[in-house]
Design a protein around this nucleic acid. Structure first.
Length: 217
DNA sequence: CTCCAGGAGA
DNA sequence: TCTCCGGGAG
């Protein structure tokens, strides 16, 4: 599977999507936690509520009670776990780095290891933060990506360096802007075409996808 | 009422 | 590998 080829197929269809809507990097970090196993629609409601509660920021989270956070983020679901995760992450950032800006000056591996050490932050949330909030190269693997790659390659469980060695990304020939965009494009592809119940017609990957090719026969 | 979408613990 | 955690939307 040639990731560059997939990028070109997607790009000629979608172009630059300009992704992860947020006013600042801290909102991206918070959104990355809230969107765990949750649709972005629900996250938007939760972010709006956090703004209303005046707790939409790293230091604000440190200062506010866990109960207040729970109330604010309720619409995004799993609020007990997520409130604790936001607390641990926020205080960890302040204690370890002092600020989000300071994190960007560290090495990718140091920041990745820090994020991975936070209870409630798994591989996907870690990579969301690394890529979209901090600008480090990371290839984000979520359930959409897994589904698309599995069908595209025709392998039940697609296993590759991409899924095991996400940080650092090694030989993936994509720069940071392309990495941001390919994840955005893969999400759109999954929502529009590569759903649980596939809609292969018009999919940008249709001509090269073994699932679509197999189905045609 | 059913579906959706990460991470941890067992 | 299975189960729990919790909402919003179709």
């Amino acid at each position: 599977m040639n990731i560059r080829k997939i990028y070109e197929l997607l790009y000629s269809h979608y172009g630059d999507l300009g992704w992860w809507p947020a006013d600042n990097d801290e909102e991206i970090i918070i959104g990355a936690v809230l969107t765990q196993n949750t649709s972005w629609k629900n996250v938007e409601i939760a972010l709006r509520r956090m703004k209303d509660y005046q707790i939409l920021g790293i230091s604000e989270i440190c200062k506010s009670s866990e109960d207040t956070i729970k109330k604010a983020i309720m619409p995004s679901g799993f609020y007990n776990r997520k409130a604790m995760t936001l607390k641990r992450l926020s205080s960890g950032i302040i204690e370890r780095f002092g600020s989000v800006e300071a994190m960007k000056k560290q090495s990718a591996m140091d920041v990745a290891n820090f994020l991975g050490s936070i209870h409630g932050i798994g591989p996907e949330t870690r990579d969301d933060i690394l890529l979209y909030a901090l600008g480090f190269p990371a290839f984000i693997i979520d359930s959409y990506t897994t589904r698309i790659f599995s069908r595209f390659t025709g392998k039940e469980k697609y296993q590759h360096d991409l899924l095991t060695g996400r940080v650092p990304i090694g030989d993936i020939p994509l720069n940071v802007e392309e990495l941001k965009n390919i994840h955005a494009m893969l999400v759109l592809t999954a929502k529009e075409h590569c759903r649980k119940k596939p809609v292969c017609g018009g999919c940008p990957l249709e001509t090269k996808c073994s699932f679509a090719l197999e189905k045609e026969k």
